[in-house]
Each structure stands twice: as C-alpha cells, then as structure tokens.
Amino acid sequence: MKRYLKLVNFEFNRFFKLYLVLIGITFVAQMSGVIVESKSYHNQANEIMQEDLLTQSEYVQQYGPMSFLNISESIWFLGTIALCAVTLIIYVFFIWYRDWVGKNNFSYRLFMLPSVRLNIYLAKATTILLFVLGLIALQLLLLPFENQVFKWIVPEVFRTDLSVLEITNLYYLNLLIPKNILEFILFYGAGMTAVMIVFTAILFERSYRLKGIFYGIVYCGVSILIFLAPLLLQASLLENYFYPMELLFLEIAACVLVLAGAIWIGNMLIKNKVRV
C-alpha cells in the first residue's frame, strides 16, 4: 500500500508540469472566451441599436438575450475541453510507453521495484483518474467565476442568467459533470474501465510486441462485446425482455466483469509476460 501510494505520487509528479500548462491554457482560453464573446455580443448590440434606433428591450425582443450557453458552446470552451480530453487520452498510452522510449529505460527500474507489479498498473490508472477529476474540479471552480465575469460585462437587460447547476446540466457538460452521485459513479466507472482495457491492451503489445498488437485488438473486441452483451441481447434475441432497471443492472454487472477481466489479465501480463 505504501509503495502504491508512492508510485501514484511519482506518476503524478511526472506529468504535473504538463498538467499545469494544460490548466493554464484552459483558464486563459476560457476566460478569454468569456470576455471576447460577451464583448462582441455587447458591441454588436450597441451597433445594431444605434443603426436601427432600437431600445434595449426592443433589441432583446428581436435578437434574443445572451446566456452563458453562448459562451459554453463557443470554440473557446469546446476547444479547451477537447484539448484536455485528447491530451489525457494520449497520456493513457504515453504513461506506459514513456517508460520504454528513448535511451533511458525506466521500465527496468519500474519492474525491479520490490513491490507487487500490479501496483504499477493501478498507480498509473489512479493517476489518470486523478488528472481527469482534477480537470473536472477545475471546470467547476471556473464556472461561477466565469459566470460572474460574464455578468460584469453584459448588462442585465441583455442576459438570461443561469446558475452553475443549470450550466452543467446543459448538453455535453452534463456528461462531464453528472447531476447525482450514481450517474457520476456510472460514467466514471465506465470511463475507468475503458482506460484499464486500453492499459491491458498496451500490456499485450509490450509483452508480445508485434503479435501483441493483434492480441490487444482481439482482447479489446471481446471486452467491448461483453460490455455490450446485455444491450445486444435485449435488441435482438430477447426482444425487450428486460425492464430498463434490470438492463441497467445487467450493464453494471457486465462493466464490472470487463473491469475485473482487465485487471486480472493485466496482472498476469505485467507479472509474468512483460518485457523491458
């Protein structure tokens, strides 16, 4: 346990500088987005009101008010969220391959640590989870602040105000920031299962190299198939035999099964088969 925590700490620190850069970019881009979008709405409104000689309320009636949605659906927001997501997805691979690439072979050291090797696997997964949660937390912290800045720039008559809860319930943000704890566990549980499937597939490749790529792909296919099995059965053979709640529980069971499989196979590979 002690060594697992040390490994988590170590893996966390290894990515931390880049992570801070990511946080910096997110902060700067989103704040710029809030300012630029708000200003441009406000300026545009002023221009049109002057040209067409409209009052503020007439303008709002004709052109509609501005809400935070206009900002959160802008490229500033979508871009940063996509950037963070893509970076972390790439890091899911790089967190393993960085131990092998280059002239320094950290994989030697890692696999010669006097600790159960599964700890390495779990520590890397934990690190990914921490980074994801960290970014979500950052977003939750930024939203009220950004909302406030939006309110400062755009006068009240032009605005439809949304609370943070309302903002997070809209569209894609709802996926990232679920409303209740159950959804949170479901979404992130499924997400982490996907991460671990990829981890185990990477270990297939690291163990059997060229052949391992094939094994890894087959393994991913089987995992996805098992995960989707209840849905597929429901849609085909069983013809809506299950109630939605039953289907949900079956899905959870399938997910747990796939997750357990990923960890078990990953453990076998990292313990007995992996090569430096």
């Binding site: 002239k103 320094n104 950290f106 030697y108 050291r109 010669m112 640590l113 600790s115």
Partner: peptide, 19 residues
C-alpha cells in the same frame, strides 16, 4: 518474487532513471 528485488539487483548498460 517482488521481495527478491531487495536481494538482487541488475545494472544494465543503459541508464534506468528518468533523464
């Protein structure tokens, strides 16, 4: 087994720490 790495060590001809 994991405990063996307290008893045996390997010095490869490549450096094993982060650059």
């Amino acid at each position: 087994h994991p405990g063996t790495y307290e008893k045996i060590t390997f010095i490869p001809d490549t450096i094993t720490m982060l650059p």
